[in-house]
Design a protein around this nucleic acid. Structure first.
Lengths: 169, 169
DNA sequence: ATAAACTTTCAATAAATACTGAAAGTTCAG
DNA sequence: CTGAACTTTCAGTATTTATTGAAAGTTTAT
């Protein structure tokens, strides 16, 4: 396989992985492109490589910056913005986890907490109790996930991976 | 809050969580309904509760069965099929992980392996080397994830959660 | 073998999601 | 201050994904 074909394949696969995980395919493809690009890229270059419009490129690059997966940098002598991707796959993972913890796990926890205020009357006592029990279990689990994710996103690569590998062996 | 409102809220929240994770919203809502239903449910009941068509209910219930999140059961004296949801949230997590490992991580690993066959010529030697280095790192990481997921989906709840909580503390 | 009771399929349609490109906004060198 | 160089926004459009419902298929009791 030749390099351009390999790059294309990687970008496609990363895009499809992303889209299976609720991440817009184009954003995942732009991210893939950054992962395998040594040099800084401009918005134009991203547009050209992936054949997407300026608006699309701009929006998705901004989101990648928000997620901490891409950094803005300036080239001396150039007015244009350039971007550089975070290459360390462990950092990438940590940042994605952090965003999703905030965007998805936290709202879930809020709702689960709320659901614990459900009142019961004479008729549905048993049903309410069963519901509460189940919600409590889900909530405990979600809290474990939440605190684990907090630990993970603040831990050092070396420490975490080493300990984790030992744990998993 | 009253019970029906609480159930509705839980179903909506679970549905939105699912859809953020690339799982069809309706399938996640059906799953939520099963999580909080004590009794067996028929396809009709699912259709009625969630106001969805027969075809939609049928397809999503089948997928939930494939994922190991819902079981088919027969009521004596009834010809109709009934279904029961897996209630243990740890088992639910294990099964979702297993499906996604198979459907997403494995294809990714296949491609990463393939990409390691990229040939270089005189011109692009350095570029190919950088690409290979990055692919190798991603591949190692994906392999760690893959073997961890295998361990997780085959481990006993008690052992795993106990050890995991100790690890995370 | 028949037909009622049920489940599955899938083409047509609807709904949700993403993309484009031109216009508006911003920045900065001169 | 001006206008060229660039970035951002967003209404309209295209694409992708999910749903419906009727027809086809299957199972079972008689």
């Amino acid at each position: 396989m030749k390099l351009p074909e390999a790059k294309e394949k990687f970008i496609q696969q990363w895009g499809s992985l992303g889209s299976n995980w609720g991440i817009n395919r184009t954003m995942a493809q732009i991210h893939a492109l950054f992962l395998i690009s040594e040099d800084l890229l401009s918005a134009e270059e991203v547009m050209g490589e992936l054949k997407i419009s300026r608006g699309n490129a701009n929006m998705n690059i901004r989101t990648l910056i928000d997620w901490g997966l891409v950094y803005k940098e300036y080239q001396s002598g150039e007015r244009k913005e350039f971007f550089r991707g975070e290459k360390d796959i462990w950092k990438v993972t940590q940042r994605v986890m952090k965003v999703r913890q905030r965007q998805e796990l936290e709202p879930m926890l809020t709702v689960l907490l709320e659901l614990q205020t459900v009142e019961s009357d004479k008729k549905d006592k048993a049903e309410v109790e069963a519901f509460m029990k189940q919600i409590k279990e889900i909530k405990s689990f979600a809290e474990l996930a939440d605190s684990s994710l907090s630990k993970i996103s603040s831990s050092e690569e070396n420490w975490f991976l080493k300990t984790f590998m030992k744990f998993m062996k």
